[in-house]
Design a protein around this nucleic acid. Sequence first.
RNA 1: GGGCGUGUGGCUGAGCAGCAAAGGCAACAGACUGUAAAUCUGUCGGGGUUUCCCCUUCGUAGGUGCAAGUCCUACCGCGCCCA
Length: 397
Amino acid sequence: MPKIDQQKIQEILSRGVEDVIVGKELEKKLVSGQKLKIYFGIDPTGTKLHIGHAVPLWKLKDFQDLGHEIILLIGDFTAKIGDPTGRDSARVVLTDKQVKENFKTYKRQASKVLDFSKVKVVYNSKWLSRLNFADILKLSANFTVQQMLTRDMFDRRMKTDQPISLQEFMYPLMQGYDSVALNVDLEIGGNDQMFNMLVGRDLQKIYNNKDKDVLTCKLLLGTDGRKMSKTFDNFIAVEDAPENMFGKVMSVKDELLDHYFELATRLSEAEIAEIKKSGNPRDIKAKLAKEIVKMYHGEKESEKSEAEFNKVHRDKELPSEMPVFEAIKSNYFISDLLVESKLAPSKNEAKRLVEGGGVTVINKGQEERVADWKKEINLEDGMIIKVGSRKFVKIKI
RNA sequence: GGGCGUGUGGCUGAGCAGCAAAGGCAACAGACUGUAAAUCUGUCGGGGUUUCCCCUUCGUAGGUGCAAGUCCUACCGCGCCCA
């Protein structure tokens, strides 16, 4: 074990942390120097990881760096059973093979944060599939319906007459039983997992007479200030290309700057304070963007993404790289050209873009806004078609 | 088992038998700027010979109308109440 650094521990237990149960206990354990078993659970859905998902991962990394044992639990059991959550989107039941594939996807993304050579990976079907009905009844006898209903999600759905499937209702128990099987010292998760993690705490105490502490991370909000999620398209994926990532951070609402510095970066308070002295929100945000890109793509890419962003958006110049469209004839109607070069998804959309003044043709440095959607364009090699402020295509003949 | 209700575009949510379907969110474009922030404006199913025409869409399948998201029947999903 590395040397115990009390201040470091304090920082780990507070930065980006919503709550620790029980804080004093956990602190004592950490200071004692014993190697702790810490676990984090994921669903093997194979989705894109965003930098909000990364918040608890960074927290795990902190503990990993302190020398503790990190266990990553793959929730393959529920994935294979099929969770009916969500009204009409009956989730596809995953096969073993898909679970493996999805884990690969996950690992690839999470490796940007965690060192997987030091992570122990376990699958919960190993123990959950062995429980029989009697076991499950026994398990459920530890809680009342009223207790389960205190979970905010259930509570909300009851109030709004939304369905709660019995299967979902049992979820906390399944997840809670993971704690019994793993018998850990600490579980880490997003704040939305608080309820489930606490059920696990209770069960582990009952079955193993061992306390599991629970640490929940604050949830990172999306770029628009709402919950970060795919449906709002307000997320920043850890595998987003550097320039894209930079741009997305720049689209974060100004009011969210502090929030992002705390949760999405690992800069110290002093460093953050220093940056915030530097001037207007635009520049502060650029530093934030640069830092975040650096965390996932490294210093060099981060520099490049900033330069590129300034070039295209601040100085309104052409990007250094853009997709190429190989023309098969020498003149196109602008609407066809936009669709075929993938700048517009349909001809109607292309027409609208032109009518809205969003299409510009650049030839030999001469810019010309296209005003008529029926216009025919005589293509020349090296000509550039620009849509909006950040979509470009270079013509090749 | 019975009664009542509900199912609409990426999401949310209006909809009187004559609508590609109000509003909100998101998205996209324009103006402005400090940025892909904020604000304001416009667009927002697909195709065309493009001031007009055609096609597809309102849980599914039929039916009644010149005409159906809108009425009827059956089925499916979901909710509430009663038992």
